[in-house]
C-alpha cells in the first residue's frame, strides 16, 4: 500500500501538486485523469521517487517500480533486446529468457534484433511498456501508455494489465476521459490544477 498525506510539490515558484492525500492498494488499477498540466505526471514521478515532496509524507514499503513516463526513450542505435538487456543488468533479476518472453507479450519478439531507430512510435510505446513489466515490479506507473497504439495492440496491452493486476499497484495516467469506460480500472482519480478533484470507485 502507498499512502500520501498532505503532499505538496513546488517547482521554482509554481505549486505543481497541492495537498495530495491518497491511498493506493495492491490488486487495483487506478486511472489518473486530468487535462494537460493538471499534475498527473508529477504525481507519478513522486510515487516512484524521481521527485521528492516539498512537504507532506509518502508512506510505502521498499517496492520495485516499472515506469513508463513521458515519451518512450531508448538508445536509438542499439537493438530492442540490447536496450532491455542493459536495463535488466541494473537489478540483475532477469535474464535473456525473461526479456524475450516480455517482448513476446507485446508482440515485439520478431523485432528484438531491430535497431530502435527503425521502430514506429507505436512500437516504441510497446517497448517502453515491455521494459516496465519485464522485471515483474510491485508498482506499475504508466503515463499515457495507449498513445499511438492501434486497436489490436491497445486490446493486448489492456489484457496484459488485467492479467498482472492481482499483486500490483497499477496507476495509469491519461487525459482521454472516455478511458474510464474500459472495464480495467477500479478507481478513477481526477486531477485539476495540481489538486485531486475526485476519487471514484467503479
Amino acid at each position: 500500500m502507498i499512502t500520501l498525506e498532505e503532499v505538496n510539490k513546488q517547482l521554482k515558484e509554481k505549486r505543481v501538486l497541492q495537498d495530495i492525500s491518497l491511498t493506493l492498494q495492491k490488486g487495483k488499477v487506478y486511472l489518473l485523469r486530468g487535462h494537460n498540466g493538471s499534475g498527473k505526471t508529477m504525481l507519478l514521478r513522486l510515487l516512484c521517487d524521481l521527485l521528492q515532496p516539498t512537504s507532506g509524507t509518502v508512506k510505502k514499503p521498499s517496492y520495485t517500480y516499472g515506469v513508463m513516463i513521458e515519451n518512450p526513450s531508448f538508445i536509438e542505435h542499439e537493438t530492442a533486446r540490447s536496450n532491455l538487456k542493459f536495463l535488466a543488468s541494473i537489478q540483475k533479476k532477469i535474464g535473456v529468457k525473461e526479456i524475450d518472453s516480455s517482448l513476446q507479450k507485446v508482440n515485439l519478439l520478431e523485432y528484438a534484433d531491430t535497431k530502435v531507430k527503425n521502430f514506429s512510435l507505436g512500437m516504441k510505446q510497446r517497448l517502453a511498456f515491455c521494459q516496465a513489466i519485464m522485471e515483474d515490479p510491485d508498482v506499475l506507473l504508466l503515463d499515457e501508455p495507449f498513445n499511438a497504439l492501434d486497436d489490436d495492440n491497445f486490446a493486448e496491452m489492456v489484457h496484459s494489465i488485467q492479467e498482472m493486476k492481482k499483486d500490483k499497484i497499477i496507476v495509469i495516467a491519461a487525459h482521454g476521459f472516455n478511458l474510464s469506460e474500459i472495464p480495467l480500472f477500479d478507481e478513477v482519480i481526477t486531477m485539476n490544477d495540481g489538486k485531486i478533484k475526485s476519487v471514484e470507485s467503479i
Binding site: 521517487d49 524521481l50 517500480y65 538508445i75 536495463l87 537489478q91
Partner: peptide, 11 residues
C-alpha cells in the same frame, strides 16, 4: 535518455 528507467531501478 534512459534516466527514468535507470533511476527507478537503482536510484
Amino acid at each position: 535518455r534512459l534516466r527514468n528507467y535507470i533511476a527507478t531501478r537503482g536510484g
